[in-house]
Amino acid sequence: MTSEQVTIGITSSAIVKHSSIGCEESEMISLSDDVVTEIILRLPVKFVARSMCVSKTWRATISDDYLRRRLPLHLSVAYFPADDPARGNAPRFACAAGGDRLLEDRDLGFFPFREGAVVCDACNGLFLLRSAEAPRFYVADPLTRRWVALPLPSRDARLSVLAFDPFSCPPRYRVINFTGWRGRVAEVEVFSSETWAWIARDADLGVPAGSLSGSMHFHGGAVYVLASDPDCIVRMDVDAGLACTVVELPEPTDGDGPVAHSGGRLHYVTGHGDLLKIWVLDDSPSTRQWQLKHAVKVHDVVGRACRGGEVRFLALHPEKDAVYMWSPWKLVEYDLTMKEITGAWEFGGKDHKGEKNRIVKTWLVPSWWYLSDCLSTGHGRCKISSS
């Protein structure tokens, strides 16, 4: 922690101390809103959350959209460690809290059914887990360590995707289950945290439904699914009755090409050998075509930072031109504009630093989202547990 952070921490602690002995708020807070905002922006996320208890003024400042939109993005991953008799092969959650390690590394010990469930998706900080014995789904928040059991769907799912929008007010999530195919029609069940019910729908995909891959991405109220016959992306609008639009791809897909959004625009990533290509869709009405934005030699970039030969693309930064690459030991952030590594993190705590692992999902969400808990304000029939 820097001297600046220490000073800020002392300031915050002093204010909390004054609060505990019953000082009036006018005596306790003598800082302007601008100064309070600058202090809060320099605090780690945990300290920001604690600062909401300092006073009504601080709580109002932290709750203000202006400050929240300025808080940095928070890098998080879900991963499986290498086989370890002491830890098993259960999924773990980690987030980049500083330094060169994913310091906030923890298991899912708060979730009581973890041994009989698998992580089938994650979206903007929430996990979607499925029971191995029954078609039961759970949504879990690994940071606040809360979980909820969803009602049973009527049919088994072939593909499942979690759609969580932290920018909605109030925050809501949905689960989209693909349960069957009929030509170009996908049979779908959609769960909403608002209605607390599953609704069966048919979605005309515009392409053979059986050509959908497991590569899915949620952004701005729509699910983007990769398909291979023809090579395209199917955009399914969750907010408009699952209306579908087909977007042709610039290059053939092997069924695993990542789809992501960065800067509000749709990107498609292809990897052929050692070359990583990043395409961006120009979605203006007059053009609507793909443009090659970056071409990167993977091992020339991250091979020096990652031990071992295996390197894989994980995610695009949602706001800037940066990619996240993975090796069995490390996660690397590479700035595509500056052409340099801007971050590298090893997995595990001090006793497991540099351990091998396999990534399930990587995401960056605004830090302010961690100041609220969407599972604690769910439907009245929502069973919630925490530890």
Rank of each mutant, 00 (worst) to 15 (best):
V6S: 07
I8H: 11
S19F: 03
C23D: 13
E25L: 05
M28G: 01
S32R: 11
I39W: 01
R42G: 10
V45P: 01
V45Y: 01
F47L: 14
V48Q: 14
M52D: 03
S55T: 06
Y66R: 12
R70F: 01
L75F: 09
V77H: 03
A78R: 01
F93L: 01
G98S: 13
R101P: 00
E104N: 14
E104T: 09
F111W: 10
F113P: 06
F113C: 12
V118L: 11
V119P: 04
C120I: 15
C120K: 03
C123P: 02
G125C: 08
L126C: 06
R130A: 15
S131Q: 03
A132W: 00
Y138P: 02
A140Q: 10
T144W: 13
S160V: 14
L162R: 02
P166N: 08
V175H: 03
N177G: 00
R182K: 12
V190W: 01
E194L: 13
W198C: 08
I199C: 13
A200V: 09
A200D: 12
A203E: 03
L205G: 08
G214Q: 08
F218A: 02
G220E: 09
A227P: 01
P230D: 08
D231K: 00
I233P: 02
M236D: 00
M236E: 05
V238Y: 06
G241M: 02
V246A: 10
E251I: 05
P252S: 12
D254N: 14
G257H: 08
P258L: 05
V259Y: 01
H267E: 05
Y268L: 13
Y268E: 01
V269P: 06
G271N: 14
D274S: 12
D283C: 04
P285M: 08
P285A: 09
T287F: 09
L292P: 02
A295S: 15
V298Y: 06
R312W: 10
F313I: 09
P318Q: 11
P318M: 10
M325R: 04
K330C: 15
L331M: 15
Y334G: 02
I341L: 05
T342M: 06
A344S: 15
G348K: 07
K350D: 14
D351T: 10
G354A: 09
K361M: 08
L364D: 07
P366T: 09
W369S: 14
Y370N: 12
R381I: 04
K383W: 03
S386N: 14
